[in-house]
């Protein structure tokens, strides 16, 4: 007799844990020929609330880590994905990709993580400045993470799109709450499992599955979310995030990009989720030629 396969329960990721939605609700996902693939969590606004709390409490620790260490952790994510490549490919195929397309998406996702791993301790030098002010002060500007970022991940690219947005976000020291692709959510949960075994501290990446219809307004209006990255194409949604985001002057941005293109990996995306802090300090002028005090 053939062996009976063990089916996977797809959960969500909040604060380093992998629970099911607190609401107990789900939406069924079916494959090409209508076969049921999974019962995906239909996350509620309470899940979102909990995820934001988790992201906020992870913020200080993650942004305060040595940049080098963040780089190592991103690289570790890539390593772990490499080891589970087959699983990711299978899942993408289940959700409708051809084998070739699935393979490409997985390897690009891994390479993208390696790419941003390298930026972790370099963007500060690319985007930081020492400013030659006219007065006797030392003045420098450095990028600092914006804080908690809500990400409405690309719909059509369940893994690569997600990785392409999450990677620059966390490489820059932010923590995030992600709403995964609605129709291709499986890879996002497997990705969460990878994160859970990659030394990524709990709460740095929180992943919810569900619908923008239910969650977007809560993402956009949440007063403890500093930025929102929207990666889909709905004009009304694009408008509403900016309007609702105004409540706390949220940095709202729309990233509609073809994530399969190499030019969509670049540090300028990382920069969009940074604040620039300028610091001043006096320089005393003793000992210089002609100086007197």
């Amino acid at each position: 007799m053939p062996r009976v396969e063990v089916l996977k329960t797809y959960k969500i990721a909040i604060g380093g844990q992998l629970p099911r939605t607190e609401s107990g609700r789900y939406y069924p996902l079916t494959g090409k020929n209508g076969t049921p693939l999974a019962n995906v969590s239909l996350s509620s606004r309470k899940d979102l609330r909990n995820a934001v709390v988790a992201a906020r409490s992870a913020c200080g620790g993650w942004s305060g880590r040595a940049a080098f260490n963040r780089g190592q952790i991103l690289y570790r994510i890539a390593e772990m994905m490499e080891g589970r490549k087959a699983q990711f490919i299978d899942e993408l195929m289940l959700q409708g990709s051809s084998r070739a397309a699935a393979e490409k998406e997985v390897t690009m996702s891994i390479d993208r993580l390696v790419y941003y791993s390298g930026w972790c301790d370099k963007y500060q030098q690319s985007f930081g400045t020492v400013n030659p002010v006219a007065s006797s002060h030392f003045n420098f500007s450095v990028p600092e993470p914006t804080g908690v970022v809500a990400i409405v991940a690309p719909e059509e690219s369940g893994l690569l799109g997600l990785v392409s947005v999450v990677a620059p976000c966390i490489a820059g020291g932010n923590t995030c709450v992600v709403l995964a692709s609605e129709q291709r959510p499986l890879s996002s949960i497997t990705f969460a499992e990878v994160l859970a075994t990659s030394d990524v501290p709990g709460g740095v990446v929180n992943i919810l599955t569900g619908t923008t219809k239910e969650l977007l307004s809560h993402f956009a209006s949440h007063m403890d979310v500093n930025a929102l990255v929207y990666c889909r194409h709905d004009a009304a949604e694009k408008m509403s995030i900016v309007q609702l985001g105004a409540g706390n002057v949220k940095r709202t941005m729309v990233w509609e990009k073809d994530w399969t293109k190499d030019e969509q990996e670049n540090p300028y995306l990382l920069l969009e989720l940074q604040e620039i802090k300028t610091t001043w300090h006096p320089i005393e002028n003793i000992g210089a030629s002609g100086a007197k005090y």
Binding site: S135, H137, N248, I276, K277, T279, H281, P282
Partner: peptide, 26 residues
């Protein structure tokens, strides 16, 4: 905060970026 003055305050210079975090703008 976007501008931090240490042992000084309210200094401005064209070369020095100025602007806020949070509800102080972007």
């Amino acid at each position: 905060a976007g501008v931090v003055w240490a042992n000084t305050y309210n200094k401005f210079d064209p070369t020095s970026p100025f602007g806020g975090y949070k509800e102080s703008g972007y």
